[in-house]
């Protein structure tokens, strides 16, 4: 699985790409913090919602790895399963900068 798959992006009009990447850069850190906070406070349902939202962005922009982790988090949050959440959140946070950097290269 790649950090960034260009497959999804290829279908988008080139003109809107910079706007999307910019938006991704502005919304994602907030969502990441959201996820982190909900994860540590144990509000798994809220965490799942945040993860879902981030997942939507990631899927649309081809951030496959981040999307996969978000999906996992969402799933765990919905099934109220706290196991391994911190690792996922840490992983998600750590690959975000690289993913965003890849996007900006486009």
């Amino acid at each position: 699985m790649q950090l960034l798959s260009t497959e999804a992006l290829r279908h988008l009009p080139a003109a809107i790409l910079p706007r999307l990447v910019d938006m991704f850069g502005k919304t994602t850190p907030a969502l990441l913090t959201d996820i982190q906070q909900h994860a540590s406070s144990g509000d798994l349902r809220a965490m799942a919602q945040a993860a879902h939202k981030l997942k939507g962005s990631c899927v649309s922009l081809g951030a496959e790895q981040m999307a996969a982790i978000c999906k996992e988090l969402q799933h765990k949050g919905e099934s109220n399963d706290a196991s391994g959440i911190n690792e996922y959140v840490a992983e998600l946070t750590s690959i975000y900068p690289a993913t965003f950097a890849e996007m900006q290269k486009l």
Partner: peptide, 17 residues
């Protein structure tokens, strides 16, 4: 009907095309 701003842009731009 979509809450994610990025997906809003993606979908509207595809529909725009």
């Amino acid at each position: 009907a979509e809450d994610n701003p990025i997906n809003q842009i993606v979908a509207t731009s595809i529909l725009d095309e």
